[in-house]
């Protein structure tokens, strides 16, 4: 995480993938299938929150409890928004195993919706980098923008996606 905060993109990517796996396991363990919350949505919301709040991580501190607290907050938040307070399933081993057996769902329905709510410029930049896998420079060239403008649009777009999660019912 320290290397990620220092701008090491490769280290950051490795970290986010590990975190995604941990969060996915936690989300599947605590959300019974059929509850109306896609665990993969929790994974994406948590990754966004971790990204936008990474300045709250204590340097040299343990990353586990920090990630766990954010994951927990996002799961409770998702359930609260859907009006289900008491249905967090703690120990449904069978359901967890079933969920594990399911194929990983390739899309986050909610994040796609959130993407649609961005301004055109932000959406083009976020899509170019994430879905099309272009670099900052390639995106800047393709869209005829300066690299700094691409970075700003990307950052604002990600922040806008995160804030739309909170408003969604």
């Amino acid at each position: 995480m320290q290397r990620a905060l220092d701008g090491d993109e490769a280290a950051y990517a490795v970290l986010l993938k590990e975190v995604a796996a941990v969060v996915r396991r936690a989300a599947r363990g605590r959300l019974a299938p059929g509850i109306g919350v896609d665990p993969e949505d929790i994974v994406q919301e948590t990754l966004l929150a971790i990204h936008l709040k990474r300045h709250t991580w204590q340097p040299d501190g343990l990353i586990g409890p920090w990630v766990h607290a954010i994951t927990r907050y996002k799961i409770v938040d998702a359930l609260r928004r859907r009006g289900r307070h008491a249905t967090v399933v703690m120990d449904t081993v069978v359901e967890t195993l079933e969920a594990e057996a399911q194929e990983e769902r390739p899309r986050g329905r909610d994040i796609a919706t959130a993407l649609g709510g961005l301004s055109d410029g932000q959406r083009r930049v976020v899509e170019a980098i994430s879905v099309e896998g272009r670099s900052i420079r390639e995106t800047a060239e393709a869209l005829g923008m300066k690299e700094t403008a691409v970075r700003v649009a990307l950052h604002r777009g990600l922040a806008a996606i995160a804030s739309r999660f909170g408003k969604r019912t």
Partner: peptide
């Protein structure tokens, strides 16, 4: 959007 795509976007934003 796939989670892996999201991670790519987040990684590209690592500097901020």
């Amino acid at each position: 959007m796939k989670t892996d795509d999201l991670i790519i976007a987040l990684t590209a934003d690592a500097g901020r």
